[in-house]
Structures are given as C-alpha cells and as structure tokens.
C-alpha cells in the first residue's frame, strides 16, 4: 500500500470542503457603528463560477491566524460574481474583518446550509419579519424577490431595530418606502429626532396588515427572543405552520455537519438549516 494524500481523494469535485478560497474585498460600506457591508469576489474564476447560492444560505469567512465565522449571504443569488456580507463586529473574526481595507484578501467557503424555499414560495404573498441583524439573510431573499417580482403576490416587509442608528440599509429602505410593489414597515424600539416612523417592537406592526393565510409565506430572522412573539402573531393571522420559515443562529465551526457545534434538537443548523419551517422548528427541542 502507498501513502494516500488528501488531494488525491478530493471528493465530489469540490476538493477539500474545509479549504477556504481567497476572495478580494471589492467594496466596504459603513452601515452603522457596528455593522459594515462587504462585497467580495472570489479570485479563482472556477471557484467563483461554482459558487451558486440560494437566499438564506451562508458562507464561512476565514481570516488565517484568527479563524472562521459563519455569515449569511445578503446579496441576491441573481447578482453574479459578487457576494455581499453584512457583518457585525462581535468578536475575533468579525473584528479582524472590520479592520480590512478594500482590496484586501480574505478566505471564503461555501455556499453552505439550506436556504429559503424560493421556488415553493412563488405565486404567494410574502410576509418578511426581521429584527436587528436578522435583516442580513432576509435581504438576500428580498432582493431575489425584487428581481423576480412578477412571480409573487403582495410583499410585506417588517423590520425592527433598537434605535434609528441601528437601522441597516436605511438608505435603500428610505427609497423603497414609496414603492407600490413592496409594503415596507420600519419600527424602532427607541426613537430619536431623526425618526418619524413607528416606535415599538416589530410585532406591533401586525395590527396594520391583512394576511391571506391560504397564500402567504412567512420568513423570520432576528435575535432568538424574537421568534416566539412573531410566530404568535403569524399564527393569530392563521398562517400555516409549514408556510412560516425562519433562520437560526447557532455556534458553528465546520459548517458541513461534522464538528457537532450547531446542534439544535435532533438536527444540525449548518446542514439541515439554518432555515427551518415552523413545523420543523416545533419538532426541534430548545429551538424557540
């Protein structure tokens, strides 16, 4: 027998699934004090070509010497060649990423996980509810719906942030306020003098909407405490348990179902999720 080397047993055409690929930062936008929007472009054309994702999937960002962090892809799948990540500076990897400049290189692995059932959602009304940074994965879905707007009925977006300074993508949303094809509702927990919109938690906005439960899909992402209350409101509107989808954040290391860190009930958030239907989530212990 001879020695076997990893590169010879590279499988299903992807090679070593743990290996990050170099990607160049092509733009950085300051969104708030803590969040920046990064646009990345994978350097190797073959890898770039192979990186096809769905809204709700994530990528592992790698900075060698620091580590890796799972980050939702916030651009739409229809935007080719570039990937946008909206990143909050909360620790080692995200902190190091925030120090990077345009033109710098980082590592990228993905796309990973199961996203929103976009095809299944077509032909229906959509109700999206985001809290805080939860807007990041939903933005991908929103933009994808935008690109294929004619495939959907009424689209309502509810987005709550702590205060006006923490509203992400405010510029885009300010422009969208006047659009007829999207019903955009923003709210903040605490207002200041730059704010003339509603004040209060995101669930308060439910009073203002009519939902047709027969043909409405829900999509939720936000801080863990938020899910229970949003689901309660959606259920009050008689939405089906298998038409409400949500994305979960768990600790992750490998992102490919091996390291065990992301366990939620009997599933792994990295490969079985991060997007689960409410029916699935109800069956996951400690999920909500």
């Amino acid at each position: 027998m001879n020695d076997i080397r990893v590169d010879e047993c590279a499988c299903d055409g992807v090679g070593n699934a743990y290996r990050p690929w170099p990607a160049r930062i092509t733009s950085i936008q300051d969104l708030t004090e803590k969040e920046k929007l990064f646009e990345l472009r994978l350097i190797d054309p073959e890898v770039r070509e192979a990186f096809k994702f769905h809204a709700g999937q994530f990528a592992e960002i790698s900075i060698f010497g620091v580590g890796e962090a799972p980050i939702s892809i916030s651009s739409a799948p229809s935007k080719q060649g570039f990937i946008e990540l909206c990143v909050r500076n909360t620790g080692d990897v995200t902190g190091a990423l925030h120090k990077k400049q345009c033109g710098d290189i980082v590592g990228l692995r993905g796309p990973l996980g199961r996203g929103f059932p976009f095809e299944q959602m077509k032909g229906n009304d959509i109700l999206l509810v985001a809290g805080g940074l939860g807007i990041a994965p939903l933005k991908s879905l929103i933009n994808h719906i935008h690109d294929e707007r004619h495939e959907f009925g009424k689209v309502t977006i509810m987005y709550g942030a702590k205060n006006p300074g923490e509203v992400l993508f405010r510029h885009q949303f300010d422009m969208w306020k006047h659009r007829e094809d999207f019903d955009l509702m923003l709210t903040v927990d605490e207002s200041d003098d730059t704010w003339d919109g509603p004040v209060g938690v995101v669930t308060k906005l439910f009073d203002q909407v009519d939902v047709d439960p027969d043909c409405t899909y829900g999509a939720i992402c936000g801080p863990p405490v938020m899910y229970k209350y949003v689901i309660e409101e959606m259920r009050k509107k008689n939405m089906d348990v298998d038409k409400i989808y949500m994305s979960f954040e768990r600790r992750m290391k490998c992102g490919i179902g091996k390291c065990g860190h992301c366990g939620v009930g009997h599933q792994y958030a990295c490969i079985d999720g991060p997007v689960f239907s409410y029916w699935e989530a109800m069956n996951l212990q400690e999920a909500i």
């Binding site: 020695d3 080397r5 590169d7 743990y18 290996r19 990050p20 170099p22 060698f64 290189i105």
Partner: peptide, 21 residues
C-alpha cells in the same frame, strides 16, 4: 493539522495529509 497557511495573501500552502499504511 488541517492545513498550513500564509496570512499575507490568505493562501493555503499545504492541506495534504499523509496517511501511512
């Protein structure tokens, strides 16, 4: 060790594993 890297260009320099019989 899963891989060796070079920080400057975020490049993987070696991710082979030698598995002896």
């Amino acid at each position: 060790t899963m891989m060796h890297f070079n920080c400057a260009d975020e490049e993987v320099t070696d991710d082979t594993v030698v598995a002896s019989p």
